[in-house]
Design a protein around this nucleic acid. Structure first.
Lengths: 195, 195
DNA sequence: AGACTTTTTTTACAACGTGTCGGATAATCA
DNA sequence: TGATTATCCGACACGTTGTAAAAAAAGTCT
C-alpha cells in the first residue's frame, strides 16, 4: 500500500510511515491483532515509539488511515481497468478489483483474510454496496417480490465474503476465472436447494 | 445467552458468569471493543477483578467461550424448529435460526452488528458453510461451470452478511419474511446486471 | 556550502491495565 | 453444623500508553 499525495512531502515522513505500515502488516501476519502494540510496531519498524505518535493518534487511527488509502487505491484500480479494457464480456470493474487484490495479496490476506480488522471489512462492504446498488435491476426484484435492500445486502455480502474466502485460501483461482464465476453466480440458475 | 450445563454447578459461579457476560454485552453496546478492559467488565458486573480470572484467562478467552455457547444455542434452535414445524414451505432450519436471533436481538446486534468480534463471525460462518454445503446441488453447478467451493463461499457469505445487515438495521423484517426472501434469492432469477 | 526548518530521537514521567499472589470473608453443600 | 468452595481484598511486578522538553539528525532553500 503506497501513499499517494500531491503536495511534496518530506521524504522522512514518507519513509517513516511506510516503515510503520510495513511493520504493522508484518506483525499482523505473525500474531493476533490484540497482541500488537505501538511498542512492537515501532520496534519492528526501527522507529522510535514517540515518532509513531507524531503520525497516528493510536493503532486504531493508523488502521483507519490505511483503510482510507485502501479505498482510494481500489477506486483507481477499478476505474483504470475500465479505461484500459473497453470491453471484456464480464464485469470489467470487478476484474480490475480482483487483479488489484491479487497484486497486493500479502496486504489483503492480512487485512481481509485473518481475523480482526473490521474497519477494512466495513470500507470494502461500503464499496460493494454502492456497486451492487447500481447493478440491481429494480423491476425484476419487484416482480419476484424481493426487497431491494435485502437484495443489496445479499449481493454485497456475497461479493465481499467470496473475495475474502478467495484471499484466505491463497487465491486458488485467477482473477479472470473468479470474475467469470461471479458473472455466472449473479446470472443465476437453480443451484441451491430450499431445504 | 444462557449457560446450559448438565452437572449441577455452584449457583455462585453461574451468577458470576452471567453478570460478567451481561456486563460485556452492555459495554459492547456503549464503546468500541478495544476500549473494554477486564477492569471495566468486572466493575460493571459488580464483581471483583480477580474473580474474572477465576473464570476466564482473558477477554479473548471469555469471548471464545461465549461463541461456543452461541453455536450450541443456534444448533438447538435450528433443530428444535425442525421438530416443531414438520413442514413450512420455506427453509425451516433457517426460520428457526432467524427467530432465535430475533429473540436474542440485543446480544446479536452487539456481536454481529457492531464492528469487531470476529470470533463470532467466524463461528457463524462455519455454521453457514456447513449448511450451504449440504444444500448445494452439485450437478447443477457443473452444468453451469461453477466451482463448488466458490458457490459455497458465495452462499454462506451472502447468508451471514444478509443476516448481519438485517440485525444491524434493527430487523426491519420479520423472520418469516426474511426466510421467504432467502428462498427467493436462492431460487434465483436475473436480478443483477453484469455491468 | 551554510543557514533555516522540520523530523526524529532520547530520556523521562504519570496513569492505567494485566496477571498473579496469599489470606480473609462469605456463600453453598452434605 | 462443619467442611468445602467461591468470592473478595490488598498488594505486587511488569508492560503499555500518551505526553513533554530538549538534543540530534535529515531535509530544504538560496
Amino acid at each position: 500500500m503506497q501513499e499517494a499525495e500531491k503536495t511534496k512531502i518530506d521524504p522522512r515522513v514518507l519513509r517513516t510511515r511506510q516503515l510503520l505500515k510495513n511493520a504493522l502488516v508484518e506483525l499482523l501476519e505473525e500474531m493476533e491483532p490484540d497482541k500488537i502494540t505501538v511498542n512492537r510496531i515501532a520496534t519492528r519498524a526501527t522507529i522510535n515509539r514517540v515518532t509513531f505518535y507524531l503520525h497516528y493518534r493510536d493503532i486504531q487511527d493508523m488502521m483507519d488511515k490505511m483503510a482510507d488509502e485502501m479505498v482510494v487505491e481500489i477506486q483507481t484500480a477499478m476505474t483504470k481497468k475500465v479505461e484500459e479494457k473497453k470491453t471484456g464480456g464480464d464485469d470489467v470493474i470487478l476484474l480490475g478489483l480482483l487483479e488489484h487484490i491479487a497484486a497486493n495479496a500479502r496486504f489483503y490476506k492480512v487485512i481481509i483474510g485473518s481475523r480482526g480488522l473490521p474497519i477494512f471489512h466495513e470500507r470494502l462492504r461500503d464499496i460493494f454496496v454502492k456497486k451492487i446498488n447500481d447493478g440491481v435491476t429494480k423491476h425484476l426484484l419487484e416482480e419476484k417480490g424481493i426487497q431491494q435492500d435485502v437484495a443489496v445486502w445479499f449481493g454485497s455480502a456475497a461479493m465481499l465474503g467470496t473475495i475474502a474466502s478467495w484471499v484466505r485460501n491463497d487465491m486458488p483461482y485467477s482473477p479472470q476465472f473468479l470474475a467469470r464465476q461471479f458473472a455466472l453466480l449473479f446470472r443465476r440458475e437453480d443451484m441451491y436447494e430450499t431445504d
